[in-house]
């Protein structure tokens, strides 16, 4: 009886696994199939004659006037700058929130919560006009600015737990030994919150890497497109070329999945932290 139950549970677990993974699997599988197999009347799960022709088409031009690597570079640069700047801002603010009691501290924390819930889709219109006025509309720096604003609130929320977890005594000991606040920060606090910083960085990276609506609205020049915009553009233009579309999707998705699996546990605790306390 007990064994039967275990068996049933594991079988259900497998079904859930297959359902969850299948769409991504199908994407990758389609990307490796020759066209005859993609549009075959009896689809097979795995490609019978795997081919790299779709990846070749995507990577070596042919899908748009600009090479894939230019889009990749745009996306990577945007994501990296977002990560560096937002991590820095978040580290400063998280230290303030976790280490000091000050007036407006609760106000600041509530503000972070509220801001995370603001529908970004609504902010496209005013930010479009603001950046247009500043002459930063069709530019990556303008876009990076917006992404930093989106990434910082959650990064602080996540990071403050890590800062708070560092025993205060360590900093006090450093202070007694004559280290100033800046030195204490770099030699004591920073090394200890490094894992937390990695986790928040990956989150910020994904935010910038996946972002669609702002990049779509702000960017005009094809040379500045990011990967999601390239994908949407390509999808819209060549509706049924599923092989190359899936190859491009696979290339966009792999880095995110790798990073995500790496960081997911921390993300959940950051999002719903403390909800089950007591």
């Amino acid at each position: 009886m007990k064994r039967a139950r275990r068996y049933l549970l594991n079988a259900t677990g497998l079904v859930v696994f297959v359902l969850a993974v299948f769409p991504v699997f199908w994407m990758a599988s389609t990307a490796f199939k020759p066209n005859t197999e993609i549009f075959s009347t009896t689809p097979r799960p795995l490609p019978a004659h795997p081919t790299l022709e779709h990846f070749d088409l995507v990577l070596n031009g042919g899908i748009a006037e600009v090479s894939f690597w230019a889009y990749f570079r745009n996306s990577a640069v945007l994501a990296l700058v977002t990560v560096v700047v937002s991590s820095l801002l978040a580290l400063l603010a998280a230290t303030a929130v976790a280490r000091f009691r000050f007036r407006f501290r609760t106000t600041f924390l509530v503000m972070l919560l509220v801001v995370q819930m603001v529908p970004l889709e609504a902010l496209v219109i005013p930010l479009f006009l603001d950046l247009k006025k500043l002459g930063m509309l069709d530019s990556l720096p303008g876009l990076v600015l917006v992404y930093i604003g989106f990434a910082v609130p959650f990064a602080i929320w996540m990071l403050r737990g890590f800062v708070a977890a560092v025993p205060k005594e360590l900093e006090e000991a450093a202070a007694i030994d004559g280290a100033g606040p800046i030195r204490t920060f770099f030699t004591v606090l920073l090394p200890l919150v490094a894992p937390g910083l990695v986790a928040t960085s990956i989150f910020s990276f994904i935010t910038a890497w996946n972002e669609f609506i702002f990049a779509y609205t702000f960017l005009d020049d094809q040379g500045k497109y990011t990967l999601p915009i390239m994908l949407q553009f390509f999808f819209g233009r060549s509706g049924n070329a599923w092989g190359p579309i899936m190859a491009a999707s696979t290339l966009l998705t792999i880095p995110v999945i790798v990073f995500f699996l790496f960081v997911q546990r921390r993300m959940v605790s950051g999002l719903t932290a403390g909800a089950v306390k007591g």
């Binding site: 859930v16 199908w26 389609t30 599923w242 899936m246 966009l252 699996l261």
Partner: peptide, 28 residues
Amino acid sequence: VSGGVMIAWATPPVTAAIIFSWLFGTTG
């Protein structure tokens, strides 16, 4: 299983939308 489930969560929205357009596609 939770590793597999994570993959669904990690997929970028643009990709997810395109994959489902393909799964529910008219031809193929």
